[in-house]
Design a protein around this nucleic acid. Structure first.
Length: 508
RNA sequence: GAGGCCGUAGCUCAGCUGGUAGAGCAACAGACUUUUAAUCUGUUGGUCCUGGGUUCGAUCCCCAGCGGCCUCACCA
């Protein structure tokens, strides 16, 4: 069964009528089309009612007002909406077909761009045709689609019926294009590295497992491209970046989707400070462009996010990890005995056997990190406990501290950067030793011998940076759920067919 | 994993102390040559998420399940 929708049969009858009148209801190539936005520019103050210049447009029929011998149709394409006027007088022999058009159909129209008595820019159709017959109706023409589950499961309906949804994904595409342009301008090379890896490395996260039949080997979906991008530094690609998916087998919430898009980049001869400059410039530039688009608040780089406003004016705030730690945990981070005492007092599990840096991390996450959402500006947190960052260079003169920062915006981890570790002996050591108190899948202790070999050949000193693209889009488009910026977020599959889908959902 | 909220016509939503359901849009039939969510007349359309329970009687109360949203937990 194609569809059990109550209106399917009626629409299918309409399709047969198109066939009987000699029209292929699923159309063909259509040349010489204008976007509705461009067609609209053919209308000026001097344009007479009936119009002067001809345009041909195509789109989905969103509104239809049949007034007898006159029909007004509002079509929508990716540039917006435009009204079409069809009259029996002009279309004469075609009039029976015009009466067959209905909401949701995709059609083209040709005619002069004029306007109506009320001034609405209108193409007065001298010709038209069905491009594709819609056999199912669109959601409510005024309210759109509000059911969040249907919006995610049938995103095409969300895009067709909710202009705000379309705008978010158009913005997403533009922002990513701007990021690429920014990095190309800085002489970065875009690359693609394996998403299926036999040793999942570069991040402490649980991977998805898959299998290759011909080789009969298990492979992991990557949790990070890091170890491959660094191999490229060894090979002489001095500035590389990749914008692509990472896969982490974790829970889902408003900030996490199991597959998410990450910008990861490495710059030879740079370091943490270089990454901070790059991050700040990039994020502030993107925010400024978004602010200009949305409002034009001359110079002020301020964007709404949920109930609040975030000020992206550079320079961003900077605060040391240890400073936040002392303020919110109440003891100096370097005082291991005090750290253990507080951790024990806080009731953290297994405090005796855990590495002190693991305890520092847990205390920070519980007491300091939550306060980061109170900042109304982006804030760089820098100088992390070394034990938490095994792929990171130690701070000169202070081996307890790793050269790492995270950028927090509205309490979200947006970016993460390091002065990269390029000492193969230290790397070998950190791969070999698992931090006490960490489960294996939470640690980075997965030996990657080939990577160590690569480091032995010499990797230039470098800065590395990761930016969560989905979260960046959330901030720039004021979406508080990651599902609103990912076209097809992961949802639990439903066994029954989709509410008004054409075919039953697969059962396997 | 824990808690809160939600699931009613194709879509958007009402539904009183518990008495087997309504509106707008869409659809169908008709009128209409300047509408703007067109308007006007008439009509069709329901497994009230699913399964139990309480009750003379359940959309409503209770329990379990399914799905979604939010908060927390988890999370380089």
């Amino acid at each position: 069964m194609l569809s059990d929708h109550p209106q399917f049969k009626e629409r299918h009858n309409r399709l047969e009528k198109w066939r009987l009148s000699g029209v292929d209801p699923f159309g063909q190539r259509c040349d010489g089309l204008w976007s509705t936005a461009d067609a609209r520019t053919l209308h000026t103050h001097e344009t007479p009612h009936e119009g002067t210049q001809v345009a041909k447009v195509a789109g989905r029929i969103m509104l239809l007002r049949d007034i007898g011998k006159l029909i007004f149709i509002t079509i929508q394409d990716s540039s917006g909406r435009l009204q079409i006027g069809l009259t029996k007088q002009v279309l004469a022999a075609e009039w029976e077909k015009a009466k067959l058009l209905e909401l949701g159909d995709i059609a083209w129209f040709e005619g002069k761009v004029g306007h109506t008595n009320t001034g609405e820019v209108t193409i007065w159709a001298t010709g038209f045709g069905l491009a594709t017959k819609a056999l199912l109706p669109l959601p409510d023409k005024f309210h759109g689609l509000t059911d969040t589950e249907l919006r995610y499961r049938q995103r095409y309906l969300d895009l067709a019926a909710n202009p705000e949804a379309m705008a978010v994904f158009q913005a997403r595409s533009q922002i990513i294009a701007e990021i690429r342009a920014f990095l190309h301008h800085r002489k970065f090379l875009e690359v693609e590295t394996p998403m299926m890896q036999s040793t999942p490395g570069g991040a402490a996260a649980r991977p998805f497992l898959t299998h290759h039949n011909a080789l009969d080997i298990d492979l992991y979906m990557r949790v990070s491209p890091e170890l491959f991008l660094k191999r490229l530094l060894v090979g002489g690609m001095e500035r590389v970046f990749e914008i692509n998916r990472n896969f982490r087998n974790e829970g889902l919430d408003t900030r996490h989707n199991p597959e998410f898009t990450m910008l990861e980049l490495y710059e030879a001869y740079s370091d943490l400070a270089g990454m901070m400059e790059l991050t700040e410039t990039l994020v502030a530039t993107l925010a400024k462009r978004s602010a200009e688009k949305s409002k034009g608040l001359d110079g002020l780089v301020r964007l709404p996010y949920g109930e609040r406003q975030i000020d992206y004016t550079a320079p961003f705030q900077r605060v040391a990890y240890g400073e936040l730690f002392a303020k919110h945990v109440g003891v100096e981070m370097s005082d291991e005995a005090a750290v253990r005492r507080v951790a024990h007092g806080r009731g953290l599990a297994n405090t005796e056997n855990k590495d002190a840096d693991v305890l520092r991390g847990e205390l920070f996450e519980h007491l300091a990190e939550p306060t980061l959402k109170d900042f109304d500006r982006p804030v760089f947190v820098y100088d992390y406990p070394a034990g938490l960052c095994p792929l990171t260079r130690r701070k000169p003169g202070d081996p307890a501290i790793a050269e790492r920062f995270e950028l927090y915006v509205a309490g979200m981890e947006l970016a993460n950067a390091y002065t990269e570790l390029n000492d193969p002996m230290v790397q070998y050591e950190t791969f070999s030793s698992q931090l006490a108190g960490l489960a294996e899948d939470e640690s980075m202790a997965r030996m990657d011998q080939d990577f160590v070999t690569a480091l032995c050949h010499g990797m230039p000193p470098a800065g590395g940076l990761g930016i969560g693209i989905d979260r960046l889009i959330m901030l720039l488009t004021n979406c508080t759920s990651i599902r609103d910026v990912v076209l097809f977020p992961l949802l639990r599959p439903v066994a029954r067919p989709a509410a008004d889908g054409c075919a039953p959902a697969p059962t396997a």
